[in-house]
Amino acid sequence: MKLALFDLDHTLLPLDSDYAWGDFVVTLGWRAAEAQTHANDYFYEQYKAGTLDIHEYIRFSVDALREHGVAAADAAHRRFMQEVIGPAIRPAARELVQRHQAAGDQVIIVTATNEFVTRPIAQAFGVSELIAIDLERDAAGNPTGAIRGTPSFREGKVARVEQWLAARGLDWSRVEHSTFYSDSINDLPLLDKVHEPVATNPDARLTAIAAERGWRILNLFE
């Protein structure tokens, strides 16, 4: 097996889908603009600094979904895809994914954004395998605010890929070649694990690490 692993936000997308969804709930009238923007910015700065409490963030990010229910959330997400995500998908990103698929690689999107936000985005890229933060849900299918299983965040991304492999009777030793594309220092554990780490649209910190370690640097949206 050859693995082509992709982070999503600021890697395949030129935006953060989690942050964009947080803005979108204001557009829907589900949250007051000032309070939502303040909280969204607070968590996003923690994420960039590598200090985010992922459990606290998930409680915040799914609160509006929990209040409005599955049907309203799904309808809202269809609008989100049409108005925000669809226009942001760039040909260069789609073509990169398709090149790996054409080469016979197993393509997986591995993201720290939750599965509600990201499943339709993965489908828009033609990717069926998604490792995202799984939301715990109640009997009606509404998010509870908790995470189900291991969050695909930092070291958790390595653990979740290993779980994906184990479910297929595989482990890293059975992977002939693995590539991981990411923009974020939060993804250093998985970048260190694969055969070919690619710093993709990296910020200054990841650019410096990539240069020091001899990793390929890809600026996908230039």
Rank of each mutant, 00 (worst) to 15 (best):
M1A: 02
D7L: 04
L8I: 11
L13D: 07
L15V: 09
S17V: 01
A20Y: 05
A20H: 07
F24E: 08
T27W: 11
W30P: 11
Y42M: 08
Y42I: 05
F43Q: 11
Y44R: 11
Q46H: 15
Y47L: 11
K48A: 11
A49T: 15
T51G: 12
L52H: 12
I54K: 11
R59P: 02
D63Y: 07
G69H: 07
G69Q: 11
V70R: 13
A71D: 14
A76V: 10
H77P: 05
R78S: 13
M81Y: 12
M81T: 11
I89W: 14
A93E: 09
A93N: 12
Q98R: 15
Q101A: 14
G104I: 14
T111P: 07
A112D: 00
I121Y: 08
A122H: 03
V127D: 03
S128W: 13
I133L: 08
E136M: 05
D138C: 00
A140F: 10
F153N: 01
E155K: 10
V161T: 04
D171L: 05
D171C: 07
R174I: 09
T179G: 05
Y181I: 01
S182M: 05
N186P: 00
N186F: 04
N186M: 06
D187C: 09
L188G: 07
L190V: 01
L191T: 03
H195L: 04
T200M: 00
D203S: 09
A210Y: 06
W215G: 04
